[in-house]
Amino acid sequence: MTSATAKAQPPTFTRRKPPANVRRRRFLVTVADHSFLIAAALVFLAPFVFIVLTAFMTNDQALSPDLWPHPFRFQNFADVFSEAPLWRYALNSLIYGGLATLFLLASSIPVAYALAKLRWRGREAAFLIVLVAMLLPPQVTVIPVYVMWAKLHLVGSLWPLILPNLLGDAFSIFLLRQFFLTIPDEYLDAARVDGCGEFRILTTVVLRLAKPAIAAVALFSFLFCFNDFFGPLLYTGESPDNWTLSVGLAQFRTVHQVQWNLTMAATLIVIAPVVVLFFLAQRAFVEGVTLTGVKG
């Protein structure tokens, strides 16, 4: 399916040529489509352009109607790092995203496997509960959970965000289960006949077949953590040492009273790694996104 998204369908030449008026109409439609696409693409790119330009402006220029930086002030990017400990924030984002993703994979894969490939009574009900847990807003349970972490004296650290991933994540379980379902049972049965236990089957057969899905889940999980704002704000809002990039960036202006040019430079610094990651793993992204959609 996804391979199809990458290619435009080639026009079919097997039928006889359509009449001239139809061809003209098709041509016009194509032109209209493309002009719309180009216009839309410009609009979509414009915010990036302005963010980049402003990131190079001087203080006063950022508050003026000028669009083009003059002179280009590269110093902004150095200033950003002296205004706020961005490296520290980046490290925290990595700790949060990295550990959470590792933990989440380790705990969610077996659950997804049991929900997809083991037969047991109550499986469908369990899956429904996973769905419900995935769909309910986290705000519903956030207060007692916060109280719990406060009593454990872990508020202020990143652990309240990382540790729960040891115990499975509904969305990842859902995604992995959907993918595991597409693995033909014949492979598993063959392994069973060979005397493999379910754990062996999972670690050898299933993991090997499900690599793309696992990569997608890992990618999503990492991006979720990187982008997460509510969680880090809630648990580390009062501990600037443990701020992630999202929280640090949101507080950048209010805490440091920083001007727009520096704010945009910082914004750019936060956007850049995600964009780079995207170009490195473009296919995993697109496949992953489609996996969240209608895939059974």
């Binding site: 693409a41 945009m264 914004t267 964009v275």
Partner: peptide
């Protein structure tokens, strides 16, 4: 198609905090 798809997809990647800051500016 590849170019356009990338252009339209890219903003979805921008961390929400960064995107919001950009828009407020």
């Amino acid at each position: 198609i590849g170019f356009f798809r990338t252009v339209f997809y890219l903003p979805a990647l921008v961390p929400p905090v960064a995107a919001t800051l950009g828009f407020v500016y």
